[in-house]
C-alpha cells in the first residue's frame, strides 16, 4: 500500500483528541483509563487510516478564547434574530445567495470558516468552489446590496479571526499586510 507516512507530530492532535473523547465517554480520567484509551487511539489511528489534516503548525490560544466567546455571542444574538424574523416577517422574508472569495486556500481553513458561518444562524453555505476557495452563502433577510456586503464582510472577518488562530505564517503576514494597507 502506498500510504504516506504520517509523522507522530502530525498525528498527535488527533490522538490527544481521541483520548479526551475516550475519557469523557467513560467519565473517568484516571491514569489507567487514559493509558488504555491512548493504546486504543493509536490502534484506531493505524487501522482506520485517513489522510491527515494538515495543520498550519501554530495555534494561538490567546486568540482562540476570545474568538470562541465572540462566536457564542454571535450564535445567541443571531438565534434570537432569526426567531424574531420567523415570527414577525415570516413568509415575506427576502434572502440572497452571496459569493464570498476567501483569502486562504488551505482546506482546513475553508472548512472551518464554512462551519463557523453555517453555525451562526442566518447564513448557510450552499456551495464551495475549492479551486478558488469561494464560498457561496445563502443569507436570510438580505434585501439590498448593502446587506450582502455586510454579510461578505462578516464572513471575511471570521476567516481573518481563524487565520489569526491557526493559519500558516504566510497567510498571517498576508493578512497583516492587508489590514495595514
Amino acid at each position: 500500500m502506498s500510504r504516506k507516512r504520517v509523522s507522530l507530530r502530525q498525528e498527535l492532535p488527533l490522538l490527544v483528541w481521541l483520548v479526551i473523547v475516550w475519557g469523557a465517554l467513560w467519565q473517568n480520567f484516571s491514569p489507567g483509563n487514559l493509558l488504555f484509551g491512548a493504546l486504543i487511539a493509536v490502534v484506531v489511528a493505524r487501522l482506520f487510516y485517513l489522510p491527515p489534516v494538515e495543520l498550519g503548525g501554530r495555534f494561538n490560544v490567546l486568540r482562540a478564547v476570545p474568538f470562541a466567546f465572540i462566536f457564542l455571542a454571535k450564535v445567541v444574538a443571531a438565534s434570537f434574530q432569526v426567531l424574531s424574523l420567523a415570527v414577525v416577517r415570516g413568509p415575506l422574508v427576502i434572502s440572497a445567495v452571496v459569493a464570498v472569495p476567501l483569502r486562504s486556500h488551505s482546506d482546513l481553513l475553508v472548512t472551518a470558516t464554512g462551519h463557523v458561518i453555517s453555525l451562526i444562524p442566518g447564513s448557510l453555505v450552499v456551495e464551495v468552489d475549492r479551486s478558488t476557495s469561494t464560498l457561496y452563502i445563502h443569507g436570510v433577510n438580505i434585501r439590498s446590496p448593502e446587506d450582502a456586503a455586510k454579510l461578505r464582510q462578516e464572513v471575511r472577518d471570521t476567516e481573518a479571526g481563524l487565520i489569526r488562530i491557526m493559519g500558516t505564517k504566510d497567510e498571517l503576514s498576508a493578512l497583516k499586510q492587508e489590514v495595514g494597507a
Binding site: 426567531l83 448557510l124 450552499v126
Partner: peptide
C-alpha cells in the same frame, strides 16, 4: 423555546432555504 422557534420557522418561512435557517441553527443554541 429555541425548539419552538425552529418549529415556527418551519411553518412560517416561504421556501426550503430560509426554513433551513430557522430549523437547524437555533437547535445548536
Amino acid at each position: 423555546l429555541m425548539s419552538l422557534g425552529a418549529a415556527i420557522g418551519l411553518l412560517r418561512f416561504p421556501d426550503l432555504m430560509s426554513r433551513m435557517h430557522a430549523a437547524t441553527k437555533p437547535q445548536v443554541l
